[in-house]
Amino acid sequence: MSDLNKDINMAEAPEGHSGAGFFATSFEKVIGLARANSLWPLPFATSCCGIEFMATMGATYDISRFGSERPSFSPRQADILLVMGTIAKKMGPVVKQVYEQMAEPRWVVAVGACATSGGIFDSYSVLQGIDRVVPVDVYVPGCPPRPEQILDGLMRVQDLAKNESLRRRNSPEYQALLASYNIK
């Protein structure tokens, strides 16, 4: 057991004043840490990148190390929307709907060339990047990205989650962002 863990970075304890039996930190940071270590993904896998996500879930890469192995196919329970694969114009509204159904806090990761920019499919039927329909927090390039890159993207989201205010969804900037996407 112990040798498995020898080279692992633990989630760092939040900065605070530690004294004898005294550890104060801002509440938000603790919650941010909790969120960061429990990001349940909603794998919105349409094509090739979805297969690489399977590899990410697999034993070799094991996304569960980050506490994210519980895929929530119900958008209500998911924390990050992992859009993997080509999103056609026909699919665009569905992505948006799924995003709207998610409960705050929510993050979106666009995985792979197709989801981020349309990639090779510069054609009449393909949406040129999902940031046309939903706000994207992290872009992961690659076609498909290696599982390492998907994990990289996940860690970027963890960074976001750690440093984000609890009341993010009430902030005017966030409201304005959503409004610009026409999301209620």
Binding site: G118, D122, S123, Y124, S125, L127, Q128, G129, R132
Partner: peptide, 22 residues
Amino acid sequence: PMLKQYPLEDQTREDKIDTYFG
């Protein structure tokens, strides 16, 4: 769309912002 007179890309669309390419 597969008729030869129509281009590959949808000419009316506004969602492509990569001005660099093509």
